[in-house]
Design a binder for these strands. Structure first.
Length: 533
RNA sequence: GCCCUCGUAGCUCAGGGGAUAGAGCAGUGGCCUCCGGAGCCAUGAGCGCAGGUUCGAAUCCUGCCGAGGGCGCCA
C-alpha cells in the first residue's frame, strides 16, 4: 500500500542522511489538493534532532528521495515552513482499485487487535420497563464500537449487565402484583401503561418477580434485536449472590486493607484511590449498596481474561466513574484497562418541539416506537452521525425522510445506484473482461479519481476510528465516499451513448469496487446496504 | 460550591499540533436527448472571551463566560 511504501522510502532516506535517532514519520493527506497527494512534516518535527533550518533539511531529504525513484511518485516539492509534498501519478489509485477487488470485504480493515480480547458492556438497563429513546445512543454506540473492534481484529464480547436484584426490582414486582389485583401501585412503584399491560398478561399463579423479570428482559432483547443489537452475554447480578462472589470480593478488599468499619457500616477507602469521598459497601442494616455487586462484577470481568474492558454509560452516570475506577484499583487491577465511555444526551425533536423522554414523564417514547417510526437503519445512522461527547439534537421527521438530504438514504442510495448499474450490465449482456485485462488508465476523469481517493482512505479511517473509539468517523467517511460516487454517477455514464466498451469495462470495475466498499463500511456501523431503495 | 462533557456558518455538525477551517440543511444563481433529477455544480457567511506552551493552536494547558449532566448508607 502506498502509505507503507512512502513511509519506508522516507525512512531509508533519513537513514541515508545519517539522522540519529530516527524520528517517527508522519504522512498525511493534505487538506488542499495543491499541496499534493501526500505530505510529511518530518523536516519540521525532527528539528530538535537535526537542528537545521527545516527547509534546508527538507531539500536534502527531497534529493535523497528523488534518487530512490519511489513507485508512483511524480514529483516532490518543499512548501511552507518545511513540508515535503508528494505528487503522485494516478497509477497509485489504480492499485487501490485492484486492492479492493482482491481483498473484497476485508479491504480497509487493518488487523490492529491481533485477537485481543475486549469486553464491551453497554445498555445494562434495569429490567423494570421497556427501553426508551434515551437508551438508543448507548445501544447503538456500544454495538457500532463492537463492530469496529471486530473489523479491526479484536475478539469482542458484548455484555448486558442485569440489575436483577434490589429495591427497583422489588418495586416493579409489587407494582405488577398491585395492578394485577386492581389495586393502586405502591408509592415508589412503576405506573406506566406498560405495567398495566403486562399485569393483565400475568397468570394468576405467577411469581410477579420472576415473571416480570422474564417478560421485561425478553422485551428488551426483542427491541434491541430489531435495532440489530445482539448480546453475547447477559450477566446477572443475582448470579453473583448465589455464587458467593460478592462475599469473595469483600473478603478480597478486607485482605487488601482498603476497607474500614465505621458508624455501623463497612466503607471502601476509595479516597486512597482518587475518589473524593469514601464509599459505603455494606450499610448499617447489613445490606449492600449498589456499588458492592458492581465491584464484584468488575472483579469478575478482570478474572475472565479480557485485556480491555469498555463500559458505555449515559451522562447521568458519569459521577459513578471515579468511584468505580477507585474500586478496581483498590482490588489491585490496572484501572487503565477499564475504559468508560460516556454518551451525552440526545434531544429529540418533532417539528422543532422537544419530544420528552423518561419513564416518569408520562409521554415517553419507547425505543420500539422510535424504530417503528423511522426504521432501524435511519435510527442507527442518525445516532452515529456525531461523536458521543457532544449533546445531539435530532429531528424525527428528518431522520425518517426518504430523500437524499437524509444522510443514511444518501449513502444507501450510492450503494443502490452501484447495484443498479451492475444490474444493467447483466441486462445488457455486457461481457466484462477480467480486471487484469481492463485498461484502468482510462479512468482519468476527476470524478473517477475522486471515488478511488475516497476508497483509499478507508484503512486510515478505520485506524483512527478504533483508536478514538469513534464510529462516527466511519460515518463521516462513508458520506464522503457516497458524495464522490454520486458525482461519478452523474458525470460518467458507464453505459452512455458515446462510451467505448473499454471505458465501460474500467468504469464497471470502479462501480464494483465502490459497491463493495460502501457495503463493507455500512456493515461496520450496522446499517444495511440494500440493492434497491 | 465541586466534578464531567460541550461551545466552530442562520440551523445540525465534521475537523490526526500543521499550510487559505470543511459538509449537509436553509439562502442565491446555474445545469435535464442516455445507468433512478430522490440529482449535480457554483456562491455568501464562522473557531464564546482572555492568557500560556509551540517554528506552528479550532485542536494542548490555565482562567473567565455560557449550555447540559452529575455530586446519597438511592440505583
Amino acid at each position: 500500500m502506498i502509505r507503507e511504501s512512502l513511509t519506508a522510502a522516507i525512512g531509508s532516506a533519513l537513514d541515508a542522511m545519517g539522522l540519529e535517532p530516527r524520528p517517527d514519520v508522519h504522512l498525511e493527506r493534505p487538506a488542499r489538493r495543491e499541496h499534493g497527494d501526500w505530505s510529511t512534516n518530518v523536516a519540521l518535527a525532527s528539528k530538535g534532532i537535526h537542528g537545521r533550518n527545516p527547509r534546508e533539511f527538507a531539500a536534502d531529504l527531497v534529493a535523497q528521495l528523488e534518487s530512490q525513484n519511489v513507485a508512483h511518485v511524480d514529483s516532490l516539492e518543499i512548501a511552507g515552513p518545511g513540508f515535503v509534498n508528494f505528487r503522485l501519478a494516478d497509477t497509485w489509485l489504480f492499485d487501490v482499485l485492484v486492492d479492493v477487488i482482491d481483498a473484497g470485504d476485508t479491504y480497509g480493515k487493518p488487523d490492529i487487535g491481533a485477537g485481543r480480547k475486549v469486553l464491551v458492556e453497554f445498555v445494562s438497563s434495569n429490567p423494570t420497563g421497556p427501553l426508551h429513546a434515551g437508551h438508543a445512543r448507548g445501544a447503538i454506540y456500544g454495538d457500532a464500537l463492537s463492530r469496529l473492534f471486530e473489523a479491526t481484529g479484536h475478539d469482542v464480547t458484548r455484555e448486558f449487565y442485569i440489575n436483577d436484584r434490589g429495591v427497583q426490582m422489588q418495586n416493579f414486582a409489587a407494582s405488577l402484583s398491585a395492578m394485577r389485583a386492581g389495586e393502586s401501585v405502591p408509592a415508589d412503584g412503576y405506573a406506566g401503561p406498560y405495567v398495566a399491560k403486562w399485569a393483565a398478561e400475568m397468570p394468576a399463579d405467577a411469581d410477579p418477580f420472576e415473571w416480570g423479570y422474564e417478560r421485561c428482559l425478553g422485551y428488551i432483547d426483542e427491541t434491541l434485536r430489531r435495532l440489530g443489537v445482539t448480546f453475547d452475554s447477559w450477566f446477572s447480578e443475582r448470579s453473583m449472590v448465589g455464587g458467593g462472589s460478592i462475599e469473595e470480593a469483600l473478603t478480597d478488599l478486607r485482605e487488601r486493607g482498603v476497607v474500614v468499619e465505621a458508624e455501623g457500616a463497612l466503607w471502601l477507602r476509595s479516597t486512597d484511590f482518587g475518589d473524593d469521598k469514601d464509599r459505603v459497601l455494606v450499610k448499617s442494616d447489613g445490606e449492600f449498596t449498589y456499588i458492592t455487586p458492581d465491584i464484584a462484577y468488575h472483579r469478575n470481568k478482570y478474572a475472565r481474561g479480557f485485556s480491555l474492558l469498555i463500559n458505555v454509560f449515559g451522562a447521568d452516570h458519569h459521577g459513578y466513574v471515579t468511584r468505580l475506577r477507585a474500586a478496581v484499583e483498590a482490588l489491585g487491577h490496572d484501572p487503565d484497562e477499564l475504559e468508560v465511555r460516556i454518551t451525552q444526551m440526545v434531544r429529540l425533536e418533532r417539528d422543532g418541539e422537544e419530544v420528552k423522554i423518561g419513564k416518569r414523564s408520562g409521554v415517553f417514547i419507547e425505543l420500539a416506537d422510535l424504530i417503528d417510526e423511522v426504521g432501524a437503519d435511519a435510527t442507527r445512522f442518525t445516532y452515529l452521525l456525531q461523536g458521543i461527547d457532544s449533546q445531539q439534537t435530532v429531528d424525527l421527521a428528518a431522520m425518517a425522510a426518504r430523500s437524499m438530504e437524509n444522510p443514511v438514504y444518501y449513502v444507501q442510495m450510492a450503494h443502490a445506484r452501484a447495484c443498479s448499474i451492475l444490474r444493467k450490465e447483466s441486462a445488457e449482456g455486457f461481457r466484462r473482461p477480467a480486471l487484469a485485462d481492463a485498461d484502468l488508465t482510462l479512468l482519468s476523469d476527476a470524478r473517477e479519481l475522486d471515488v478511488l481517493r475516497a476508497i483509499s482512505e478507508m484503512n486510515d479511517v478505520m485506524i483512527l476510528a478504533v483508536r478514538d473509539r469513534a464510529p462516527h468517523k466511519v460515518i463521516t467517511w462513508l458520506r464522503e465516499l457516497a458524495a464522490a460516487f454520486h458525482g461519478f454517477f452523474h458525470d460518467c455514464y458507464v453505459f452512455g451513448n458515446d462510451t467505448s466498451p473499454e471505458v465501460t469495462t474500467a468504469r464497471l470495475w470502479l462501480v464494483e469496487a465502490s459497491r463493495s466498499t460502501l457495503a463493507s463500511g455500512l456493515g461496520i456501523v450496522g446499517v444495511s446496504a440494500p440493492e434497491e431503495l
